[in-house]
Design a protein around this nucleic acid. Structure first.
Lengths: 204, 204
DNA sequence: CGAATACTTGATCCGCATCAAGTGCCGTGG
DNA sequence: CCACGGCACTTGATGCGGATCAAGTATTCG
């Protein structure tokens, strides 16, 4: 039922996709636009962000190389509810909506794959929603740095990005990080954060 | 691409589903159990809830008659991350996992329908996540009573249920409701809440 | 090397959770 | 049909987590 994408489907995706290069901080699409294609991140790191009226950004989802993005709005039939921005320089493949249509008709497994992919993300988001209201900021921050550093160990996560991921502020994250360092859970060198006690962080 | 469910598929679902009766407050499934079927709510109201260590409940999603539920964990391949409970007396149809498999193979449109359904819910959850951290409780409560009363106008939403939906507490919701009443936005009679100014509530 | 960006630290303040001590509805059984 | 028990609601007092503001210092990158 939930088999992986077949090599035949992979080949077909290869043949219709078109590669583009992006620089850090460039947008792939912006909130309220209408989806016209599916994106496949070949290399780099993408953030799905939402900017509030007051200017606060929220980091809703993060995509790493090999992952599709821009799929939620495409399949829900809605306008984008957030913007996709490069957190690093990226290489991104575009797959036109027409081609996606064809692939979905031809490969039912592709739809099942996407269904599983989104189902997992819905679970993550609902779990996250509970954490925001139940856990104190130090717990949310600890979870966040473990999650983010394992998702993209090579990325230099800033205090602001961590805050945007766990619904806090950069000032508060700085204070929390220094508390975690005093507890011996992490080590800060330069702007880098090193995790010393992963298990400890997760059960603060 | 995103067509509705065909009458042929509907008939087939009819032929394999098995109806069950439930009373208010009964659970259909509980957190951490393994999904074995898909549920279709024929009549009543279902809440997807998560109970924290401290006993606080969170109302993640609400299903009304005609909607499928129990699908997220089924398709993500995970254990249930929340429990389904009857908010009212319910009539529920069970569709066995085996039959779902068959239906998905036979009707690709069914998978596409489910993909759209979950994509919309992921959007709702991410929007909700932002609201929790950005909006004050009076705005969240105002949104919540509009949403809940339109979703199920006949249901007697309690202060606690409203709180569980918008990440607050029943005490706070009571105070907020009396403030909204003073503003002339709503009217409380008995335990019922009447919306007097829908637009006003949404843009507080 | 210089400028921009990222980080740091302390002071202040406020929203809302929590606690406590009630009152009022409402359905149930006698 | 009414009384009673329980659940839902109400109101005020209190405390604290963390946002916000301000005024710096440190890194990094072109």
């Amino acid at each position: 039922m939930f088999k992986k994408i077949s090599s035949q489907l992979k080949d077909e995706i290869e043949s219709v996709k078109i590669k583009h290069q992006y620089k850090k901080k460039q947008f792939i699409y912006k909130v309220s636009e209408s989806p016209t294609e599916l994106y496949l991140l070949e290399h780099g790191l993408i953030g799905l962000v939402f900017t509030c009226e007051n200017g606060n950004d929220h980091l809703l989802r993060i995509f790493k190389s090999g992952q599709f993005f821009g799929h939620r709005s495409l399949f829900s039939g809605e306008l984008y509810h957030g913007s996709s921005i490069c957190l690093e320089d990226c290489e991104i493949s575009f797959i036109d909506k027409k081609n996606i249509n064809t692939l979905i008709q031809k490969y039912p497994e592709f739809t099942v794959f996407l269904l599983k992919y989104i189902s997992i993300d819905l679970g993550k988001c609902e779990t996250h929603r509970i954490r925001i209201s139940e856990k104190e900021v130090i717990q949310r921050a600890a979870d966040a740095i473990v999650y983010l550093s394992e998702l993209a160990p090579e990325h230099k996560w800033t205090r602001l990005e961590i805050a945007q991921y766990c619904e806090s502020t950069s000032t508060t994250i700085v204070k929390v990080l220094s508390k975690l360092e005093k507890l011996g859970m992490i080590k800060q060198s330069g702007h880098r954060i090193l995790i010393l006690n992963r298990e400890g962080l997760l059960k603060i």
